[in-house]
């Protein structure tokens, strides 16, 4: 007797459980189905559609023209609210001095913002030059590759940007950048780096560093447009990217880059 009731009870539990399962499954199924329908929400997000009508930005830095005045580094900090401490730079300038004995001396006091004091006497110098550094806006960028959540990405214009509301601050991208261009913003506590002044580009203004460069050592332009100043420059000069061996697809081209530079 007791057995039959318990069997009945089991039956009841089973059927109610089945019902619950059914509705749970429909609910889950519907949500999943819905998220598939919302094409943007598939498990693996679609590859980026390349919009040919948008520019594809590249940058040229002409080392022969740079006079190491530091205007760019200073303007960059002011334009992008980067703390004025000597540790955080979206762009900075290095002075390379190759001495007659073959050794290389590199300095970048406060990123070059206060200008440069010549540290090696003239008679010891084999050659010396300034190298402004900034994000290379790589097309195969290692920082995007390693970001676990998609908080850094290549914009349709080829500008590598950061999503400050989505970055989890794991710092993996900082490790992955071979150029040392990334840092953790000490106030916002997320990754930070050069955006090619994306907010200025969108308002048809030049990036702050290029606005203030007195000698026109920095240029940016549309690599898709074969008649742009930038493409012309690239055609007429022998340019080089930093660390070509790493195949980062850097879009920052240096004119007159010396082999000592890393």
């Amino acid at each position: 007797m007791s057995q039959s009731t318990s069997a009945m009870g089991n039956e009841k539990i089973k059927s109610s459980r089945r019902k619950f399962l059914k509705s749970a499954a429909t609910l889950a199924g519907a949500t999943i189905g819905y998220s598939w329908l919302k094409s943007s929400q598939v498990l693996l997000f679609a590859a980026e559609p390349k919009d040919e009508s948008l520019p594809w930005y590249g940058i040229v830095i002409d080392i022969e023209k740079c006079i190491g005045c530091g205007s760019c580094a200073k303007a960059c900090k002011k334009e992008n609210d980067v703390p004025i401490e000597p540790f955080f730079f979206r762009t900075w300038i290095e002075q390379y001095t190759v001495k007659n004995d073959g050794s290389v001396n590199i300095v970048s006091p406060n990123g070059g913002i206060d200008g440069f004091e010549q540290t090696v006497p003239d008679e010891d110098i084999f050659k010396s030059f300034f190298v402004p550094k900034m994000c290379n806006h790589c097309s195969k960028s290692p920082c995007i590759q390693v970001c676990p959540v998609g908080a850094t990405y290549d914009s349709p214009e080829g500008v590598v940007l950061i999503d400050e509301k989505y970055c989890i601050g794991c710092r993996y991208c900082v490790q992955a950048c071979p150029y040392g261009c990334r840092f953790i913003h000490p106030v916002k506590k997320v990754a930070n780096k050069c955006t090619l002044c994306y907010h200025r580009l969108k308002k048809n203004l030049t990036p702050a560093c290029m606005e203030v460069c007195p000698t026109g050592a920095r240029m940016y332009g549309n690599l898709r447009d074969k008649n742009s100043e930038l493409v012309k420059f690239l055609k007429e000069h022998t340019t080089q990217v930093l660390r070509p061996n790493l195949n980062t697809g850097a879009k920052l081209y240096y004119n007159a880059l010396s082999s000592e530079v890393r």
């Binding site: 590759q145 676990p148 959540v149 998609g150 970055c167 601050g169 953790i184």
Partner: peptide, 20 residues
């Protein structure tokens, strides 16, 4: 993490090319 409250993002939008 400097934004530990966002850690769940790793599970919901994992970037397939990221080892982490």
């Amino acid at each position: 993490l400097s934004q530990p409250q966002r850690a769940y993002e790793i599970m919901i939008t994992p970037h397939s090319s990221s080892a982490m």
